[in-house]
Design a protein around this nucleic acid. Structure first.
Lengths: 333, 333
DNA sequence: ATGGCGACTGGGAACGATTTCATTCAACCC
DNA sequence: GGGTTGAATGAAATCGTTCCCAGTCGCCAT
């Protein structure tokens, strides 16, 4: 229906090859170039990307598969990735799996069919495993979540250290019965849980934890379950959704923070600073994660056989009122 | 590099046409179909979408251009759109403009070049105007923001009514000096401002308002400016970012809500219920907006010449503590 | 037996761009 | 002036599919 390069060629009185060169970078005389531009204007020509990709055998697109487009962590990363891609003249094909391994698999297939140049991926644990058996045909960079060891470039947070920092902080503030809620679909949840467990052990404290689906409602239920095992003095939540769910549960039960329960978690979302008291969190360097992922991808495209790299970034603890020093007397009244 | 349909054909001992039919819906004997499937497995064949699209002249993709991927309003809509598209066997090409008309134009061009089947768009005011002059080649459905009257199908909130409801509520609660902060990039901001202005006039109250860029920092500055014109008793913010910025400013100044300042706005984001007191908001039917947009798009594809339709949805007021009745005595102490 | 029909299959022409290769033509050097 | 160079242009092949068209084959009715 719409004009093709032949229509433009006819309108300009030149061959299709010349039109292609005039629009691309080939050598074309100024006169003809002007004629072509005019013909493009007249015909309303827009290049057909499908045809271009088919012929040139490159998509000019990188794929980005995220677990949850509603999670500000991922949207932050997506922004950075898109900015870097835009700068490099690449498009981003963004897909959202909602933590569903089936959709993840379907999007992985899609990425192959689109012949994307590279792929940035935050895999669920299920997919991380499968990735080793059937590696995609294009370069892959994993973000946020670990994959099969040593197979893919990756950008990760030092989750164990971050968890340890939170536990250390809580202990220093006088809390002992520290419970943990961790996301069960991601390797990240596992790492954070492990950091929590190890640090609790180091302090000689007994851990009390649960893996739950990464949804606020699940966190509410998880918190209720933890409470039944013995009321904790503090709760550590491994992502912002779980943190929010916990806070909702706390509000519903009418508990005071931090007098009845201290709270700490991950991701410095705006609301964590708006509630009162503010919630202590580990802030992740979202933009840096996105930038590094793109950088790794470009490196890999340039040198396909270079050794696999793993970029480990550190979170920054933002201490707020939710983890104020424990006042034993007040809580005993 | 990767296997093509010819490779599969060779491996299966049939013609490419037969492979195509075996994978599609054409009539193929069971025996050959099995052979083909086996050959697909062996060769690791994945269809090339660029080639398929070129030949079949349809992209199987709908475009979705949003102003701000970080805004939960848009991610909510995007989810619903994607779900509906998935059900219809279509892909979604999601693009984020960050309210930048230039990027909007560039993505509009991209959508043409991708030959998307249809387009769902939340235009800035600048783009809404340009849309009339150079209408895209494919069906367009506008969401959230009005465009050139009568040209495109659209799904909109009854913004004037929503603003009116908030103002009426504030007045009923005893507030008089009600200020407004509205987003300047969207037609939605204009409509909400107009609803605010009209309703204030109906109550015989003097409006005090500002249009600001849709960012939290801009809202802080805008609030400061409004305060200089005379301390308001209540503030109405036309979207969640402005609402958040206003709340940040309020916290920074140490004002109490609602004693020193009542607060109301748009979008029922989780944090509006988590802060204390909770913030009164208009909840928008995100999923319904997405569903309706897809429904309009499908209708349009089926009947390209049907009259233009405009679906007007209503918001739901969620009343919380931030607009509790004004206690004159308390505030005078 | 013949014709017709239906189901299946292969050949080959598209789809719209890019790119190789050959051709033209003007300018230039000795 | 003839041969050489180089830039500009066009013809045609090509990318991987789909799909129209024609052909084959078995089967059934006449």
């Amino acid at each position: 229906m719409t004009a093709s390069i032949k229509d433009v060629a006819r309108a300009a009185g030149v061959s299709p090859a010349t039109v292609s060169r005039a629009l691309g970078k080939g050598p074309v005389s100024e006169a003809l170039r002007a004629q072509v531009m005019e013909a493009v204007r007249v015909t309303g020509y827009r290049p057909n990307l499908a045809a271009r990709r088919l012929r040139s055998q490159e998509s000019g697109t990188i794929g980005l598969i995220l677990a949850d487009i509603g999670n500000p962590f991922f949207t932050g990363v997506a922004r950075a990735v898109e900015a870097a891609a835009y700068e490099a003249g690449l498009r981003v094909l963004l897909c959202n799996t909602d933590e569903d391994p089936e959709r993840e698999a379907s999007y992985l297939a899609l990425m192959q069919e689109e012949r994307v140049t590279g792929l940035i991926l935050a895999p669920t644990r299920a997919t991380a495993d499968r990735l080793a058996e059937a590696p995609p045909a294009m370069p892959v960079v994993l973000i946020d979540r670990p994959g099969p060891a040593g197979l893919f470039d990756s950008v990760l947070l030092d989750n164990a250290a971050a968890s340890a920092a939170l536990v250390d902080h809580l202990v220093a503030q006088g809390y002992r019965r520290i419970a943990g809620l961790f996301g069960q679909t991601s390797g990240t949840g596992v790492e954070r849980a492990e950091g929590y467990r190890a640090t609790m052990a180091r302090h000689g404290l007994a851990p009390s934890w649960r893996f739950v689906p990464p949804q606020a409602e699940a966190a509410e239920a998880g918190f209720a379950a933890l409470s039944r095992e013995g009321q904790p003095e503090a709760v550590l939540a491994s992502n912002s959704l779980l943190l929010m769910g916990t806070l909702q549960a706390v509000r519903a039960k009418g508990l005071r923070i931090p007098a009845d329960l201290a709270l700490a978690g991950f991701d410095n979302e705006p609301w964590t600073g708006l509630v009162e008291p503010g919630v202590t969190v580990i802030e992740q360097p979202l933009a840096e994660i996105g930038r590094q992922a793109m950088a790794l991808l470009f490196e890999r495209l340039r040198a396909p056989d270079a050794p696999v790299r793993k970029v480990m970034l550190s979170g920054r603890a933002i201490l707020r009122g939710s983890t104020a020093p424990r006042r034993v007397l007040a809580s005993m009244l």
